[in-house]
Amino acid sequence: MKLTIFDCDGVLVNSEEIYLSAELEYLESIGASFEPKAYMQSFMGLSPSAWKAKLQASVEEKTGAPLQADFYDQIDQISTFRLEALLAEIPFARQTIDQIATLRCVASSTPAARLRWKLQRVGLIDLFDPHIFSTDLVQNGKPAPDLFLHVAMAMSASPHECIVVEDSVNGVIAGKAAGMHVIGFTAGNHCMADHGETLLRFGADIIIDKYEDQGAAIHSFGATISQGGAP
């Protein structure tokens, strides 16, 4: 394996649990309740534009009314307030990633400015800079493979030489569509008991539930693939 591509939200930082809580609470307050597992599977990992379009359709169907003009501003304000107070590194991320032998980068659905802010905020940006790739760089975000293919080209790696570390269904779908190997990562507090099974069902090759196992998994995963075996 030549390159390990890390998602950010829910893989490097705990932002997914923050977003999930803020969004579901706000949606319930306006009469558009979602079951958390279904919401995660449908919306987590999407690019902002895809998330907005899909969420608008779902909310309008649930409420029978068009979105208020400040709908997304309200969600953003709540989420940003909580991120500033609660954002943190996923435990053992730095210590594990610093030991990984492959090239590494970040590929996230988060817009570039917010992505760099998150990594800077938790003290992980130096592990990846300047190899930090945002959905802003491509026309179609996850679950389309565009971002991962852009990253592979930028990092001079063939798709089959890449391992993607993802916590979302949409990210797993994107990684497999790009022809890459995918580790489903379930260490985040937002991941429910059966989240690994869901990621496997959508194409993840293996599941890792804590960073302490991540480095060894990448090494053995790559060795198995290089020998022509199944992950």
Results as ranks from 00 to 15, higher is better:
residue 1 M to V: 10
residue 2 K to Q: 11
residue 6 F to D: 06
residue 10 G to R: 11
residue 26 Y to I: 00
residue 32 A to I: 00
residue 34 F to A: 00
residue 39 Y to A: 00
residue 42 S to K: 15
residue 47 S to L: 06
residue 48 P to N: 09
residue 58 S to F: 01
residue 67 L to N: 05
residue 68 Q to D: 15
residue 71 F to I: 00
residue 71 F to M: 04
residue 78 I to T: 11
residue 80 T to G: 02
residue 85 A to L: 10
residue 89 E to N: 02
residue 91 P to N: 08
residue 99 Q to A: 08
residue 99 Q to Y: 01
residue 103 L to N: 12
residue 106 V to M: 03
residue 109 S to V: 09
residue 110 T to V: 13
residue 111 P to I: 05
residue 112 A to N: 12
residue 116 R to L: 11
residue 117 W to K: 06
residue 124 L to N: 06
residue 125 I to K: 12
residue 128 F to W: 08
residue 131 H to P: 02
residue 135 T to D: 08
residue 137 L to A: 12
residue 145 P to S: 04
residue 145 P to L: 03
residue 146 D to K: 05
residue 151 V to L: 04
residue 152 A to L: 09
residue 153 M to P: 03
residue 153 M to T: 15
residue 156 S to F: 10
residue 158 S to D: 14
residue 161 E to G: 12
residue 163 I to A: 07
residue 170 N to G: 13
residue 171 G to K: 07
residue 172 V to R: 11
residue 174 A to S: 15
residue 178 A to L: 03
residue 179 G to F: 10
residue 181 H to L: 12
residue 182 V to G: 13
residue 185 F to Y: 12
residue 194 D to R: 01
residue 195 H to I: 00
residue 197 E to D: 15
residue 198 T to F: 02
residue 202 F to G: 02
residue 213 D to M: 11
residue 214 Q to L: 15
residue 215 G to K: 14
residue 221 F to G: 09
residue 222 G to I: 01
residue 224 T to C: 08
residue 228 G to Y: 07
